[in-house]
Amino acid sequence: MAVNEIIRPGSGVLFMKIGTHANESLADIIARKTREIRDAGFGMWGYGGNTCHPASMVQPFARTFAGRGRTIHLCMEEMNSNHFGEGVAREYSVDGTTWQEIPEAIEVRGSRYALVIEDLHEEKFQLPLDQTRVPVGPSTGRLGSRYIQGRVDKACLEVLEAPELSNDADPRMIGIDMVATLRDPYAVFLRGER
């Protein structure tokens, strides 16, 4: 997939920092998740926090961009983490009300939410955060480079025509290591333990 296809003005990008551990490399993760996608027809990428709530943020964001015929790309930046997710989720729900079993082939650990993904692969490029804007939620209108800081480590973003030039800050690029595409229903709630 061409990077130009991802960073295309008007496209939707879900940015996320992902923790990798000494005992599982990026390639290992991709291999494991690719098997899940092959066996179940889709994969689930677990996450937490309130910045990308499935029902109030990711689903409306993704549906809006899908309605415009755009593919929503999940762009992930690798970082070291000491956190090991424990407990494999048993059920998922699109709306938090109706629940169904997670396919046996899929294993999501230690997460309250999950993105529904396919076509996961390694891809390295620079994401220009100054050329993105938050299109949903209470920070609607905020530039991606000002939004992603401190405790905010994931975001729904819209790619702008051009970077916003500013005198008070240097252009902010983030190195992306891995990319997937989101598929309907885009994000789900998780519960239970297998």
Binding site: N50, T51, G137, Y147
Partner: peptide, 8 residues
């Protein structure tokens, strides 16, 4: 206590 807009 708003994770995604702490300055709001």
């Amino acid at each position: 206590h708003l994770d995604d807009a702490p300055e709001l």
